[in-house]
Write a protein that binds this DNA or RNA. Sequence first.
DNA 1: TAATAAAGTTAGATTAACCTAACAAATATA
DNA 2: TATATTTGTTAGGTTAATCTAACTTTATTA
Lengths: 222, 222
Amino acid sequence: MLSYTEENYLKALLKLSFQNEDRPEAGTNEMAAYLGVKPATATDMLKKLKEKDLVTYKKYGKILLTDIGRKNGIAILRKHRLWETFLYEKLDFSWDEVHEVAEQLEHIQSAKLVDKLEEFLNFPEFDPHGDPIPKANGDMPAIAKTLLAELNAGQNCKVAAVKDTSTLFLRYLEKLKITIGTKIKVLEVIAFDGSLNIQIENEEPRSVSMKFAESLFINQLP
Amino acid sequence: MLSYTEENYLKALLKLSFQNEDRPEAGTNEMAAYLGVKPATATDMLKKLKEKDLVTYKKYGKILLTDIGRKNGIAILRKHRLWETFLYEKLDFSWDEVHEVAEQLEHIQSAKLVDKLEEFLNFPEFDPHGDPIPKANGDMPAIAKTLLAELNAGQNCKVAAVKDTSTLFLRYLEKLKITIGTKIKVLEVIAFDGSLNIQIENEEPRSVSMKFAESLFINQLP
DNA sequence: TAATAAAGTTAGATTAACCTAACAAATATA
DNA sequence: TATATTTGTTAGGTTAATCTAACTTTATTA
């Protein structure tokens, strides 16, 4: 049985490994920063996780999840995303409110609860932020990894997921009436500052910054 | 903010105060036994709770909840019973499975979550065991406190709640097709051993033990 | 009421998760 | 490549919640 804290370390490592697709390992400071603890604390915990065969760890080396560690991390991510979906769909929580509560709910221990919750929600594939929900066996739908910023003028796409899940960004999206699935057409790319002119569904064209375009994952449309 | 453990002590004290209607206070050993810790541990924690003004406590004296302590305890009970209702009604958990998971869920911190959950469940008054669910303001429907064992031959009643929530008892009730609201008629009281002959709804009459009759709270019917 | 039993407390340890401060290794840069 | 910077580790300490063992107070009973 893993402690609340151990679970958080595994989840952090998993998230960091997604963030750098080609580099699935992380460093001590990186993990500490992500978890809001001091590096010394992370060192201690990583040694402990190594003892439990959940991560590979060597002094001054990079950290990787073992297969068991990965399996556990994915189970937590699954719970997190199912709870987010529940909060959003059944309890009318907004996009930016779900995360904080799901951080707590993801640590509830009950295999039956997770599976029943999934069934109750009708086996959703994606959470409210568009991130894929792992199945009970650990399978996970492919992650969209094209950013809006990578498109050229004239191309069409559908919003697949948010890269930035900060409240500020999510509120801004709400204001622009952008949710998962919203269609966007790129009208023009401004070379000067990387900003885009886009058309959201059939609304009036508007401009968004490069920072904005780098925060949205999309699926291209023909 | 209360710790997980502090919350459990408050809830325990509240539960013990319900168990002895006329004696709302508890002793150190009693609490320790209830919580599964050693008396020395309970002593330490009670001192801490006293510092926080959640209980009244004096060396070698009985323990009582303060108003603040009671308020907090009721908030936890509210969460516990709402989650039990959710598990039972929405996720198809059985009578005897809900408690364990609700023990974990009751510690999730989010006022919005509790209130939204209550709304989602349609403001239930009683949990799956028939126990009253406190409202957001702390109000609580009256508790049925007549036992089936107190009735005489010829009297009718409706099952209001279970006094014993052990798996063994709940499973037995299921077998007898007794749930909250089931009508029972007392046909005969056997003076020898306190057992009863009863009719459950319109089933064949059957005998139940005194122990059984002392484990069910009922509301009398005319 | 004196002896015994039950209930409750204290002191001193332990464990998990955290910290600070000082140090060591690895990496980047002048 | 020597030095500076970044990254990571170690040692020693803190806090919350637990324990055991010894002790004290209160309650029961012979």
